[in-house]
Amino acid sequence: MSSALEGMAGGATRSVKARMGRGAAWALLALLVIVTIFPFYWTLRTGLVSNASLFEGNQGKGVIERVLPDDPTAVNFRRVLGQATEAEILEATGRTNSASFNYLTALKNSVIIAGAIAVGQTVFSALAAYAFSRLQFKGRDALFFLYLTGMMIPPIFVLVPNLFLILGDFWFFDFTGESLNWIPGYESDGLFLLGTLPGVIAPFFFMTPFAVFFLRQFFLGINRSLEEAALIDGASHFRIFRSVILPIARPQMITLGILTYITAWNEFLWPLVTVGRFPEKQPLTVALGVFTTQQPGTQPDWSGLMSGTLLAALPVIIIFMIFGKRLVDSIQFSGIK
């Protein structure tokens, strides 16, 4: 064979190889999308059939035949939403009084907790970020550094001390017991904020080091010439914050608010400790977790459980569908969360 032919053959192999490489990479991405979506689909599929069908339908069927729900029903979702009759519950679970959690109450609690945290944290962190990015005062950098070290503290480290605070024990200053009885209408149960929504909200309401850091980074990039003109005209810093910084930073603040909302929605450890024994005050994560530990080891109510699981994730999935692109773009901006 001549060297010219060899060269041509080499070129052809290279392009075939490159095309195969691209094909393999596309296959990888397609597989990734399937792997990501399938568990959610399967949760939905399980919620749409009866427990009996889950147990019987298994034998002798392959994976493919099991992919579509046979004989779909909405009864499991209605059970979770508290809309099912006793007869339906008996038929679905084989028990008259099956353990359950109150989805709508838990949903309401989750919405209140996550909403309050998202709004409070974003607003107060933005105020702090303004001071750290725009004002000059003694010890500014030292204070900012101190805030940043807070990012390194694992949440479990402050779990017990924060629980003390929620119980009204401020270390050297104790609010527990009857010390608050002078407040009109306050009836001491000795628990202060334990078992209340404000108790769940409080530690995340005023700031997190990450939120201050995230917004400061963005504020630093905003051109100062606008504000300088306003300041010379005698505008106050609150005025500048409200009329110059907020309009420019609104998209970033909304993004941070959404991230904070989702983080608060997903929080498990802190609400478990503060409202784990107060069913009326549990957010969805804790209600679902407690509900799981109450399930029997044999023949649990899978279709009911999967309906509840999907409904617990649904609000996050909806937020994701509306704001997904914005959240992805924020990763490009902040680089790191």
């Binding site: 107060f124 962190s125 105020l127 702090a128 303004y130 001071a131 004002l135 000059q136 005062f137 003694k138 500014r140 204070l143 101190l146 805030y147 807070g150 503290i153 480290f157 402050v158 017990v160 001390p161 924060n162 003390f164 605070l165 270390w171 409080a202 530690p203 309401f205 005023f206 700031m207 080091p209 201050v212 810093h237 609150f238 914050f241």
Partner: peptide, 28 residues
């Protein structure tokens, strides 16, 4: 300039940081 301008901006986050991050760390 100055703390006079800065403190209202810092107060809420400072309360939160002290109450729920700094003092609990020492207490832990």
């Amino acid at each position: 300039g100055g703390w006079k301008a800065a403190w209202p901006f810092l107060l809420p986050s400072f309360i939160g940081f002290m109450l729920f991050f700094f003092i609990p760390t020492l207490r832990g």
